[in-house]
Simulated assay, not measured.
Amino acid sequence: MMKFKALAIDIDGTITYSDRRLHFLAAEHLRNLGIPVVLATGNVLCYAAATSKLIGLGGKVISENGGVISTGFDTNPHISESMEECEKAFSYLSNRFDLIRLDGDLRKTEIALRRNVNADDLQASLEGAGFYIEVIDTQFALHIKSKKVNKGTGLEKMASLMDLDVSDFIAIGDSVNDREMFEVAGYGIAVDNADPGLKLIADHVTSMSFGEGTVEALQILCRRDFF
């Protein structure tokens, strides 16, 4: 059986409880895994880096849904050139919907919104106006982002920077924004609280939810000698 060399894992809803508190046992398992662990999130770089530091990992993070990639705490991040088109889309939508922007100037490649509007309505409006932009709902925020940038492209970039093949990674996640990461990784595990569409493409779905699901997944992987 193929041995995997690294793990890419979502944060919110995957290594947390439902209220976003960090699941300490999941963090301990990640810290002691013995292979590189990449945190992959729709959140901003400082949040992802702080989470990596607090868990005791090495600072390898994919943030902003693949838009910002960092290989360590003291390295310069790789930032995609996608903010200008997102700003144009946000400006267009702001004239038609009551949007509440999150994270201020922290985001460099996409725009996050409060979930007070429907993502499908925003998407339909943008498509009607010819924007090549997508709006995704991660259940924690809405994201106005480039269709060219996602956790899958982010993982491909991270793999290249680590001198690995993207198929060397196992991916664990719970949300629609984890789909592309699952599609390029060598093996994908969805925790039980995951989006139904993500479960359909996962290689394995845990019986437990949130951080407990990740603990279950890591125990299974170690027991089956995946690493």
Rank of each mutant, 00 (worst) to 15 (best):
R101G: 00
I69H: 02
R224L: 08
K108Y: 05
T51L: 11
G59A: 01
R115W: 06
D19H: 04
A112L: 10
A48I: 00
A8S: 08
I100N: 05
G59R: 07
P196I: 10
I79N: 12
N43K: 02
L99V: 08
I189W: 05
L142I: 03
L106I: 00
K60G: 10
L7G: 02
D98V: 02
R224Q: 15
I35E: 00
A119T: 00
M208R: 14
A40W: 01
Q219L: 11
V44I: 00
K53R: 14
G67L: 10
D174K: 05
F4K: 01
T71K: 03
N116H: 05
F226A: 08
G197C: 02
D163I: 10
S167G: 15
R114L: 12
G66D: 00
N116F: 08
Q219H: 06
S18E: 03
L33K: 01
T75L: 15
R20E: 05
F4D: 04
A49T: 12
K151H: 07
L164V: 06
F24H: 06
I62Q: 12
S175Y: 09
T75F: 11
V135M: 09
I79E: 14
T214K: 12
G67T: 13
A26R: 01
L57H: 03
T109W: 04
Y17K: 01
I189A: 03
A159H: 07
K3R: 12
Y92C: 06
F227I: 06
A27D: 04
F140V: 15
Q139L: 15
A119N: 03
I111Q: 09
G152V: 12
C46M: 08
V117L: 04
S91Q: 14
A159T: 10
Y47Q: 09
G128S: 13
M83L: 15
A159Y: 09
T71N: 10
D12K: 03
A26H: 03
V166K: 05
D192F: 11
K60Y: 09
T214Y: 02
I15G: 09
T153F: 04
K60D: 14
C46A: 13
